[in-house]
Amino acid sequence: MSDIIVYTQNECPPCKIVKMFLTEYGFSFSEKNIHEDEKSRQELTDRYGSYSTPTIVVGTEVIIGFDIGKLKLVLNVID
């Protein structure tokens, strides 16, 4: 499985849901809080062209915003 990076910020309910989803399905991930880390915020905007959280990076796939359906598809999660 590719590395998973979740860009988050404080007081972001969808970010919390994405992290709970990943944990529930046993995926490990790195969290980068753009509110607490300027370098992560710059990386999010410059590298991925995103200004939203959550933004989830799975290998070369970038999911901008809260889209559990797309995340399940990218991670091959079947309910």
Score class of each variant (00 low, 15 high):
Met1Tyr: 14
Met1Val: 13
Ser2Glu: 13
Ile5Lys: 05
Val6Tyr: 03
Val6Gln: 03
Val6Asp: 05
Tyr7His: 04
Tyr7Leu: 10
Asn10His: 13
Glu11Gly: 00
Glu11His: 00
Glu11Ile: 00
Glu11Thr: 02
Pro13Cys: 10
Pro13Trp: 09
Lys16Val: 10
Lys16Pro: 02
Lys19His: 02
Lys19Ile: 03
Phe21Pro: 06
Thr23Trp: 01
Thr23Arg: 03
Thr23Ala: 06
Tyr25Cys: 09
Tyr25Thr: 09
Gly26Val: 08
Gly26Asp: 05
Ser28Asp: 09
Phe29Tyr: 15
Phe29Leu: 15
Phe29Ile: 15
Ser30Asp: 14
Ser30Gly: 15
Glu31Leu: 11
Lys32His: 03
Lys32Asp: 01
Asn33Ser: 08
Asn33Thr: 06
Ile34Asp: 08
Ile34Gln: 11
His35Tyr: 14
His35Met: 12
Glu38Met: 01
Lys39His: 01
Lys39Pro: 00
Lys39Met: 00
Lys39Leu: 00
Arg41Glu: 14
Gln42Lys: 13
Leu44Lys: 01
Leu44Asp: 01
Asp46Asn: 07
Asp46Ala: 03
Arg47Ile: 04
Arg47Gly: 00
Tyr48Met: 10
Ser50Glu: 06
Ser52Ile: 11
Ser52Thr: 12
Pro54Asp: 13
Pro54His: 11
Thr55Pro: 06
Thr55Phe: 08
Ile56Lys: 02
Ile56Phe: 06
Ile56Arg: 04
Val57Asp: 03
Val58His: 08
Gly59Pro: 01
Thr60Cys: 09
Thr60Trp: 10
Glu61Thr: 12
Ile64Met: 09
Gly65Phe: 12
Phe66Arg: 02
Phe66Met: 01
Asp67Phe: 01
Asp67Asn: 04
Ile68Asp: 02
Gly69Met: 08
Leu71Ile: 00
Leu73Ala: 11
Leu73Ile: 02
Val74Gly: 07
Asn76Arg: 11
Val77Trp: 04
Ile78Phe: 07
